[in-house]
């Protein structure tokens, strides 16, 4: 931890605050993954970590190395850009997969009820809302 002594006070404090804010935001996001009730709600939680959490820690890293090496160190911004561009893709495919699996299970339950042989035994995960049917 010797190289921190070379950091001026203002930089050290800003870096510390940024890192703490980023880590805390990420932790809150993960807590949401634990606490929220339905799958679609839970999916919102990690975006805290991918936006503000990543942003803060990347900024802190950029500031730290820029001051330590007395030149502009910008390559961490690639991580921020990459995460911003890829998160929508992941989440979009995941939501679609979840909707698809829900609809398949609903259809199976309905057909089972129709047969009469298997009364609806498979309990569906209760969502607060179904997607509005496209009309």
């Amino acid at each position: 931890m010797n190289e921190f002594a070379k950091l001026p006070d203002w930089a050290a404090i800003i870096i510390a605050i940024l890192i703490l804010a980023g880590a805390a935001t990420t932790l809150i996001g993960s807590l949401g993954l634990w606490r929220l009730n339905s799958f679609y709600e839970r999916l919102h939680a990690p975006t805290l970590g991918t936006t503000l959490g990543t942003g803060c820690i990347v900024l802190a890293s950029m500031l730290c190395f820029s001051v330590l090496q007395t030149r502009l160190v910008l390559h961490e911004i690639l991580i921020a850009i990459f995460v911003t561009v890829t998160t929508p893709i992941t989440l979009m495919i995941l939501v679609r997969a979840a909707l698809f699996r829900d609809s398949v299970e609903r259809a199976e339950t309905l057909s089972n009820m129709h047969d009469g042989s298997h009364p609806a035994t498979s309990e569906l995960e209760v969502n607060h809302s179904r997607p509005p049917e496209a009309t």
């Binding site: 919102h44 991918t50 936006t51 679609r96």
Partner: peptide
């Protein structure tokens, strides 16, 4: 990207024929 990176909203599906966007 904008909708997904503001927490609380999620892009679900865009119907290109009708031009409607579904978000959660």
């Amino acid at each position: 990207c904008i909708i997904t990176s503001t927490p609380g909203t999620l892009w679900v599906d865009f119907d290109a024929t009708k031009g409607t966007l579904m978000i959660h």
